[in-house]
Computed example of a mutant assay.
Amino acid sequence: MDHPVLEAFWMMLWFFLWIMWLFLLFRIVGDLFRDHELSGWWKALWLFGLLVLPFLGVLLYLIVRGRSMTERSVRSAQEKEQQFQAYVRQAAASEQSAGGDSVEQLSKLSELKRNGDLSQAEFDQAKARLLA
Protein backbone atom coordinates (compact mmCIF):
# COMPACT_ATOMS: atom_id res chain seq x y z
CA MET A 1 0.00 0.00 0.00
CA ASP A 2 1.15 3.49 -0.82
CA HIS A 3 1.10 6.11 2.00
CA PRO A 4 1.45 9.62 0.53
CA VAL A 5 1.40 11.30 3.95
CA LEU A 6 4.32 9.20 5.16
CA GLU A 7 6.23 9.89 1.95
CA ALA A 8 5.61 13.63 2.36
CA PHE A 9 6.83 13.42 5.97
CA TRP A 10 10.07 11.69 4.93
CA MET A 11 10.61 14.14 2.08
CA MET A 12 10.17 17.10 4.46
CA LEU A 13 12.49 15.52 7.01
CA TRP A 14 15.25 14.96 4.44
CA PHE A 15 14.77 18.47 3.06
CA PHE A 16 15.06 19.94 6.59
CA LEU A 17 18.24 17.93 7.27
CA TRP A 18 19.71 19.06 3.94
CA ILE A 19 19.00 22.73 4.80
CA MET A 20 20.58 22.24 8.25
CA TRP A 21 23.65 20.71 6.63
CA LEU A 22 23.90 23.69 4.23
CA PHE A 23 23.77 26.13 7.16
CA LEU A 24 26.51 24.20 8.93
CA LEU A 25 28.62 24.09 5.77
CA PHE A 26 28.41 27.86 5.25
CA ARG A 27 29.11 28.51 8.93
CA ILE A 28 32.17 26.26 8.82
CA VAL A 29 33.54 27.85 5.65
CA GLY A 30 33.03 31.30 7.19
CA ASP A 31 34.78 30.15 10.36
CA LEU A 32 37.69 28.79 8.33
CA PHE A 33 38.31 32.11 6.63
CA ARG A 34 37.80 34.12 9.85
CA ASP A 35 40.33 32.09 11.84
CA HIS A 36 43.64 33.98 11.91
CA GLU A 37 45.50 31.30 13.86
CA LEU A 38 45.07 28.57 11.23
CA SER A 39 47.61 28.56 8.40
CA GLY A 40 46.62 28.74 4.77
CA TRP A 41 47.59 25.13 4.15
CA TRP A 42 45.30 23.88 6.92
CA LYS A 43 42.48 26.04 5.59
CA ALA A 44 42.98 24.61 2.11
CA LEU A 45 43.09 21.06 3.50
CA TRP A 46 39.88 21.56 5.48
CA LEU A 47 38.18 23.13 2.47
CA PHE A 48 39.31 20.25 0.24
CA GLY A 49 37.93 17.78 2.80
CA LEU A 50 34.62 19.65 2.92
CA LEU A 51 34.34 19.55 -0.88
CA VAL A 52 35.42 15.93 -1.40
CA LEU A 53 33.64 14.35 1.57
CA PRO A 54 30.99 16.95 2.46
CA PHE A 55 29.01 15.14 5.18
CA LEU A 56 32.02 13.51 6.81
CA GLY A 57 34.02 16.74 6.49
CA VAL A 58 31.34 18.76 8.31
CA LEU A 59 31.12 16.19 11.10
CA LEU A 60 34.91 15.99 11.47
CA TYR A 61 35.23 19.77 11.57
CA LEU A 62 32.59 20.01 14.28
CA ILE A 63 34.31 17.29 16.32
CA VAL A 64 37.86 18.64 15.92
CA ARG A 65 37.29 22.42 15.91
CA GLY A 66 33.76 22.86 17.29
CA ARG A 67 34.82 24.32 20.66
CA SER A 68 37.26 26.83 19.16
CA MET A 69 34.61 27.73 16.58
CA THR A 70 32.28 28.76 19.39
CA GLU A 71 35.01 30.71 21.17
CA ARG A 72 35.83 32.65 18.00
CA SER A 73 32.16 33.43 17.45
CA VAL A 74 31.74 34.70 21.03
CA ARG A 75 34.93 36.79 20.78
CA SER A 76 33.74 38.31 17.51
CA ALA A 77 30.34 39.18 18.99
CA GLN A 78 32.01 40.82 22.02
CA GLU A 79 34.30 42.89 19.78
CA LYS A 80 31.34 44.05 17.69
CA GLU A 81 29.43 44.97 20.85
CA GLN A 82 32.40 46.99 22.15
CA GLN A 83 32.72 48.80 18.83
CA PHE A 84 29.00 49.60 18.86
CA GLN A 85 29.15 50.89 22.45
CA ALA A 86 32.16 53.09 21.59
CA TYR A 87 30.31 54.48 18.57
CA VAL A 88 27.21 55.25 20.66
CA ARG A 89 29.31 57.00 23.31
CA GLN A 90 31.12 59.04 20.64
CA ALA A 91 27.86 60.00 18.90
CA ALA A 92 26.21 60.93 22.19
CA ALA A 93 29.19 63.05 23.24
CA SER A 94 29.32 64.93 19.93
CA GLU A 95 25.55 65.46 20.02
CA GLN A 96 25.69 66.68 23.60
CA SER A 97 28.49 69.12 22.91
CA ALA A 98 26.79 70.43 19.78
CA GLY A 99 23.43 70.60 21.52
CA GLY A 100 24.91 72.25 24.61
CA ASP A 101 26.48 75.03 22.53
CA SER A 102 23.25 75.84 20.73
CA VAL A 103 21.25 75.77 23.98
CA GLU A 104 23.77 78.11 25.57
CA GLN A 105 23.63 80.48 22.63
CA LEU A 106 19.82 80.42 22.58
CA SER A 107 19.71 81.32 26.26
CA LYS A 108 22.12 84.23 25.61
CA LEU A 109 19.93 85.40 22.72
CA SER A 110 16.80 85.29 24.84
CA GLU A 111 18.61 87.22 27.59
CA LEU A 112 19.66 89.88 25.06
CA LYS A 113 16.07 90.12 23.78
CA ARG A 114 14.71 90.38 27.31
CA ASN A 115 17.17 93.19 28.07
CA GLY A 116 16.05 95.01 24.94
CA ASP A 117 19.40 94.72 23.15
CA LEU A 118 17.79 92.68 20.32
CA SER A 119 14.54 93.30 18.46
CA GLN A 120 12.09 90.47 17.77
CA ALA A 121 13.19 90.30 14.11
CA GLU A 122 16.87 90.09 15.04
CA PHE A 123 16.11 87.44 17.64
CA ASP A 124 14.12 85.36 15.13
CA GLN A 125 16.87 85.65 12.52
CA ALA A 126 19.62 84.62 14.97
CA LYS A 127 17.49 81.77 16.32
CA ALA A 128 16.83 80.45 12.81
CA ARG A 129 20.56 80.61 12.04
CA LEU A 130 21.36 78.62 15.22
CA LEU A 131 18.77 75.94 14.61
CA ALA A 132 19.71 75.45 10.97
Rank of each mutant, 00 (worst) to 15 (best):
G99F: 07
W21S: 09
Q82G: 02
A44S: 04
E7V: 06
K127E: 08
L45H: 12
I19M: 09
A86E: 14
M20D: 10
Q85N: 06
Q120I: 15
A126H: 10
K113Q: 15
E104I: 05
E79V: 11
I28S: 00
S73V: 06
D31Y: 02
G66M: 07
D117V: 14
D31P: 01
Q125S: 11
G116V: 08
Q90P: 05
Q120M: 14
Q105W: 02
N115S: 12
N115P: 02
E37R: 11
M20A: 08
R129M: 06
T70A: 03
S107I: 06
L22V: 10
H3F: 01
A93W: 04
L131R: 15
E81G: 06
D2N: 13
P54Q: 01
F33Q: 00
K108W: 14
V5M: 15
L118H: 04
A86N: 14
D124N: 13
G100S: 13
A91L: 14
W42Q: 13
S76P: 00
F16C: 02
A93E: 11
R89D: 10
A128F: 12
K113W: 14
W18A: 09
V52H: 01
S107D: 04
L38V: 09
T70P: 00
F48V: 07
W18K: 04
A91I: 04
K43R: 12
L25P: 00
Y87F: 07
M1R: 12
S107K: 09
L47M: 12
R89L: 13
S119C: 13
L56T: 04
A86S: 15
Q105D: 02
F26C: 06
K113Y: 14
A121L: 13
L22I: 08
K43S: 10
K80W: 01
W21Q: 14
A128G: 12
R65A: 06
Q78N: 05
F33L: 03
M20P: 03
L25C: 03
L109K: 04
F33D: 08
V64L: 07
W18C: 06
F23D: 08
L32Q: 03
R114T: 13
V103D: 10
S97R: 05
N115R: 11
K108A: 15
V88I: 07
V5R: 00
L24D: 15
L38H: 03
A91P: 04
W14N: 11
D124R: 13
F15N: 05
S119K: 04
A128C: 09
L51P: 10
Q83N: 05
S110V: 10
S107C: 03
E37L: 10
L118F: 13
Q105K: 06
S102I: 15
L106V: 09
Y61M: 02
G49E: 03
M1G: 13
L106D: 09
L59R: 01
W14P: 01
G40Y: 04
L51R: 04
